[in-house]
């Protein structure tokens, strides 16, 4: 089913909170084949000046997956089999570490179609804050493929 732009733009996300823990960071490091001990070993991390295990660059989306995930696509009646990840961008302000509590606030920034409505694009922007401090921002572009040619 093609994306309904007005409905998508009107989508409101609640603020989520993710508590970064060492175990999850170690699991993530294993899943991406990260062998640098700074991401898994507390002594190595502290030797590099980190207060605890650091959050790697793409883990911010994992935090958002946990607090918000892709449920909003189901709420918009989008078929998960028709969704592709088009783009992903991060801007970093400050390092985040295990033990930090991060507030996550997504919003829909844009919705548009291309190729005679066979492709819908949904742009989501998310702020990651620690207390009052903005630590990172992300921009996600999702592509929804309308195999029926797009009815909208």
């Amino acid at each position: 089913m093609p994306l309904e732009p007005a409905r998508a733009m009107a989508m409101v996300f609640g603020r989520g909170t993710f508590e970064v823990d060492r175990g999850r960071l170690r699991l993530f490091a294993a899943a991406i084949g990260e062998r640098d001990p700074v991401y898994t070993d507390l002594t190595a991390a502290r030797a590099q000046g980190h207060p605890d295990l650091p959050v790697p660059p793409t883990f911010f989306l994992t935090m958002e997956n946990e607090t918000h995930g892709l449920r909003f696509l189901a709420d918009l009646d989008v078929d998960m089999g028709a969704v592709l990840h088009g783009e992903q961008h991060f801007a970093y302000r400050s390092m985040v570490h295990a033990g930090d509590q991060i507030d996550i606030q997504p919003r829909i920034a844009d919705v548009y179609s291309k190729r005679a409505n066979t492709l819908d694009f949904l742009v989501k922007e998310t702020d990651f804050t620690r207390g009052d401090e903005l630590v990172a921002q992300s921009k996600t572009v999702m592509v929804i493929v309308n195999r029926d040619g797009g009815a909208s």
Partner: peptide
């Protein structure tokens, strides 16, 4: 790292 972005 200040920014990191990709297109799939």
């Amino acid at each position: 790292i200040r920014s990191y972005g990709v297109r799939f």
